[in-house]
Design a protein around this nucleic acid. Structure first.
Lengths: 207, 207
DNA sequence: TAGTTTATACTAACACTGTAAGCTAACACT
DNA sequence: AGTGTTAGCTTACAGTGTTAGTATAAACTA
């Protein structure tokens, strides 16, 4: 039926195309609608061929999660580097806005990372933890800088704990926002984010 | 094969048993592993019989979500009523702790409500919004009371917005905690929650 | 260059899922 | 008694992830 492509295609990069098709599908339908057979259909290949590149569906999902974390981490780093090193408030604002922007631009990727959207999927922590941690590096680094400059308002909490709390606050707001679970208080997500960000800065950082 | 039960069983409450079996399954395997056929197997009935009580799987999930919201809301109300009306800080602490306790006790129910764990399921907002809102009533009421007592530190933010932000903070921390997505900072979820709760109280409320 | 191995595609099949259609026995009501 | 409705059942269909077995083209080896 199919024209039987020439065996080892050598440079067709089918693995990359599978990942690409998976993202396309996730962006449209959400992570939980990921289907190996539909990926295969879209690519014009047989479904089991995917198993030449991923040991099973979970393995593909893990690859997607790693890619998403790397994307988030690189956006964070870019935002951090875009602000002057010595202007800590500017750096903080830059990475804060970049964090929300990334989540709003790629909501399904964000939910893929931080939700539990795939039936029966459990993330292999030892694989994911390192790159997940690296997506928090920019924030941790800024908090550390505030600390070393003696500009932390709160002194009885470890800097990494402060960073973790800032993250859970931002994550809580952003994840609820892109899931459309915000309580109906007449404020758009952007406005609420600005308010919360200001409150966070006020509470933890001097000047 | 089966002894063919006596037709209209009238008081067998199969609908209730289906929901019960669904919870049992969700508690063990997580919400995304919910399977109508396995429910039927556990109850010793045929899978399509479920359709006599729920129009489809999503309908069952909606019923579960409503039940979960109601449970959360009633726990919140109980916690609110357990503290003396005039002691606003005690009431706030009571509902705060009750919120986390409920989430930790029923993590899968919490994730069912606030995550997007079911493949292809989209919550019917007009059905769920009212009971979802009612689970925030205790918090809103306490914040209102602080406001009317002139004991809000922050005056340029609407009280409902303050309540919403407090909720997103608590939700962010709790949801990440029960999903085991907390950054590795050596603090247990309980400790982190106490720290964050104190910070919230300090930031918004006087005395 | 000829022969062998290996990688990558395929088809067919299995076990599972939600769900629709149609049948039947028991009850409720005229 | 007869009728209609309810709530079970079996059967069947289309979808899913996954495994097994097969074929072919490329790459390596003698």
């Amino acid at each position: 039926m199919s024209p039987r492509p020439k065996g080892r295609t050598s440079k067709s990069d089918l693995r990359g195309k599978i990942i690409e098709a998976a993202w396309e599908q996730i962006s449209r339908e959400g992570a939980s609608a990921l289907s190996l057979r539909e990926i295969a259909r879209n690519l014009g290949i047989a479904a089991p061929s995917i198993y030449n590149y991923f040991s099973d569906r979970d393995d593909l999902v893990t690859a997607l999660i790693l890619e998403a974390y790397e994307s988030l981490a690189s956006h964070q780093k870019a935002a951090n580097d875009a602000a002057p090193v010595e202007n800590l408030h500017a750096r903080l604002a830059s990475i804060g806005n970049a964090y929300r922007d990334w989540a709003v631009t790629f909501p399904q990727r964000y939910l893929l990372i931080f939700g539990t959207p795939i039936p029966g999927y459990v993330a292999p922590l030892e694989t994911i933890a390192p790159v997940a941690a690296s997506s928090l590096n920019a924030l941790i680094s800024v908090v550390e800088s505030f600390h070393q400059a003696g500009r932390l308002k709160v002194v009885d909490i470890d800097t990494r704990t402060i960073a973790a709390l800032i993250w859970t606050r931002v994550h809580g707001l952003v994840s609820v926002d892109i899931s459309n679970n915000l309580p109906p208080i007449g404020l758009a997500g952007t406005q609420l984010f600005q308010i919360e960000f200001k409150l966070i800065v006020d509470q933890f950082f001097k000047e």
